[in-house]
């Protein structure tokens, strides 16, 4: 059973929740576990890393140099986890998020991998918010010494407050966990090569007469400020993804009056509007 696990993703992707659930479940199953969250700068920013260890023996130090399992949630995780890879490491990653360009950088270090379309599956069948729990399913499929029921229990405890407010959260999470386990159990390297997505060409330029409206998905975090600030309701979320895998707004250019409100309110500089006179 792998004992040293590194998880890495963007803040907000649920990396720490996954790590915590595993650490707590290991403890309640009579194992020792240690979990060390490591954020870029204090609470926010940068890539969110979690050092996790599970062992039947006492754990003396929470950090380590090489990992038995590495879990990558996003492209920016790749440089952060690179040094933890050895020839025995199991590399689990979201192949509906991570780009081929990023995987290329570690290809020659990977012998053993599990590619999971976590976000795509979650988006399509459940909710994009549970993509992390799909990955959790993939991880626990490899932690056979711990009873599956115990993971379910911890998962539901973790979201207990939210489930009271929104009961459907329970089934979304349990569904995601089961889906993740199923992907892991059926996984076959012959069928699923070590690859990710191609950097997609999404439509970024929209224009009419004197107005040009441009979006930059590589900067968009999906906050929605631009949408609520548009006086003509010309903006809405689209299926195209911004840099966190979030939905990125799109314009209905016929409705746009070129006022520039959306550009001005965007904290990330992800929209540009030009109006010629």
């Amino acid at each position: 059973m792998p004992t040293k696990i590194i998880l890495a993703g963007e803040g907000g992707q649920g990396v720490q929740t996954v790590a915590k659930i595993i650490a707590v479940t290991a403890q309640r199953s009579g194992k020792n576990s240690s979990y060390l969250p490591a954020f870029g700068v204090e609470q926010r920013g940068g890539v969110s890393l979690a050092y996790l260890q599970i062992s039947s023996k006492p754990i003396t130090y929470p950090r380590f140099a090489k990992a038995d399992m590495v879990v990558a949630f996003c492209d920016r995780a790749i440089p952060a986890i690179k040094d933890f890879l050895s020839k025995d490491t199991l590399f689990i990653y979201d192949n509906s998020v991570i780009k081929n360009k990023s995987l290329e950088k570690i290809k020659n270090l990977i012998n053993n991998y599990l590619a999971m379309p976590a976000l795509a599956l979650a988006k399509e069948k459940l909710s994009s918010k549970v993509a992390n729990v799909v990955l959790l399913g993939g991880i626990i499929a490899h932690l056979k010494e711990i009873d599956y029921q115990e993971f379910e229990k911890t998962l539901l405890e973790e979201f207990a407050d939210k489930i009271i407010k929104k009961p459907e959260i329970k089934d979304l999470n349990l569904g995601a966990l089961k889906a993740g386990i199923e992907i892991a159990e059926k996984f076959n390297k012959e069928e699923t090569p070590f690859s990710g997505i191609e950097a997609t060409e999404i439509k970024t330029n929209f224009s009419k007469e004197k107005i040009s409206w441009q979006r930059f998905p590589e900067y968009c975090k999906g906050c929605g400020l631009c949408i609520v600030r548009c006086p003509t309701k010309a903006l809405q979320f689209s299926r195209d993804s911004g840099f966190l895998g979030n939905p990125m707004p799109i314009v209905t250019i016929e409705k746009c009056i070129g006022c520039g409100n959306c550009m001005q309110i965007c904290p990330d500089g992800a929209i540009k509007v030009e109006k010629s006179t």
């Binding site: 907000g12 590589e218 900067y219 975090k221 906050c223 840099f243 966190l244 965007c266 904290p267 990330d268």
Partner: peptide, 17 residues
């Protein structure tokens, strides 16, 4: 350093823009 490290919708990032 972009996208910057502030949360989605952060007013502090907007002030810095």
């Amino acid at each position: 350093s972009k996208p910057h490290k502030f949360c989605p919708g952060c007013g502090q990032a907007l002030a810095l823009k």
